[in-house]
Simulated scan of single mutants.
Amino acid sequence: MEPTERKKSSRTYDAARTKVIILDAAEEIFAELGYSAARIDGIAKASGYNKSMIYQYFGDKLGLYTEVVKRADQIGDQATGSTITDFLKNDNLIKDPVVFRRFLGTITREIYEFLLEHPRYLKILSWEAAEDWKTWNQITYRPDDITQLYELAKTAKKSGIIRQDFDPAMFPILIMNMTTATIQAFSRYGNMLGKLDSPQIREQTIEQIAKFIIHGVIEPSLL
């Protein structure tokens, strides 16, 4: 490799590494303080880089926040996307209630485990909910974690698997909110529910959420 090529490769690597470090620091600050209270000064100090570097790579605070959300969403897609895709390829998904129940149990588990493994993202979602999703609706990147599930629910309702009095638009909301709200509630009710760091309690919780969702959306005669 020519010296100029090595130098260019080194700069590219350093830039990528720098962005990761800044995003890690930003994710931590946004998770702890929320978007409104977070400051670029604090993120710069936490990352070890100056503000000019942050502005150079991300433009402004909203641009930085957008990249934090985008990265988390892409990681989430990697965790759950293959499962959704594999099930959608199964022709029996909207024909066989057993397959549909298995899909609900699997997607619930993967979303739940993803949120447990990424507590900062869960905190960011909590801040957004507390602030009525004000900043979320300003960012240029739009996480699309509901369209596939919504379309699936509409088709499953037409085929008679989903109960006829259930609105398919509520399907992705129910799955996301049940998993998110349950994790958030554990700290409050830990004396009664136990701790999520227990594999047994984690497994029981996932099963309970899945059962609630399954019995809430599937046609009762098929249960």
Rank of each mutant, 00 (worst) to 15 (best):
M170R: 13
T147A: 15
D145W: 14
T108P: 07
K158E: 10
A169Y: 15
Q148M: 15
D165K: 03
I173W: 15
D91A: 14
L116S: 08
W127N: 08
G160C: 02
R163L: 05
K157E: 02
K134A: 13
A156P: 04
I111H: 13
Y112Q: 06
I162F: 06
L115T: 05
A130P: 01
R101V: 01
D167C: 07
F87K: 02
T135W: 07
R120P: 10
I161F: 03
H118Y: 14
F100L: 01
Q138E: 15
R109F: 11
R101M: 04
K123P: 10
D167V: 05
T106A: 06
K134G: 12
A153C: 09
T140H: 14
Q164P: 03
T135C: 09
P172I: 07
A169E: 15
I107V: 03
T155D: 10
G105A: 04
N90A: 07
S159C: 07
A129C: 08
I111S: 14
K95D: 03
D144F: 12
W136N: 09
D132S: 12
F171K: 05
I94C: 05
Y112C: 06
I94E: 01
N92A: 10
L174E: 12
K95Q: 06
P97M: 00
L116C: 11
K123T: 06
T108S: 09
E131S: 14
K158Y: 12
S126R: 09
A130M: 01
A156N: 02
T155G: 07
I139M: 09
I161Y: 01
K154F: 05
N90L: 05
I94V: 06
K154R: 09
R109Y: 07
Y141M: 10
A169K: 14
I124T: 02
R120N: 15
I162Y: 02
A129F: 04
E117R: 13
L152K: 03
P119D: 13
L116A: 10
I94G: 01
I173D: 15
T147D: 12
E110Y: 12
E117I: 08
W133C: 11
F114V: 05
F171D: 08
R163D: 04
F114W: 05
K134V: 09
L174D: 14
L122D: 14
L149S: 11
I162G: 02
P119H: 15
L104E: 03
F166R: 04
T135N: 10
D132F: 11
I124V: 10
L152Y: 04
D132A: 14
I111T: 07
W133Q: 05
A156E: 01
L152G: 02
I124L: 07
Y141Q: 06
Y112E: 04
D144R: 09
S126T: 09
P168L: 11
E113W: 09
I173K: 13
T108N: 08
D144L: 10
E128I: 00
Q138T: 12
L88D: 09
Q138Y: 11
A169F: 14
P97V: 00
W136V: 04
R109A: 08
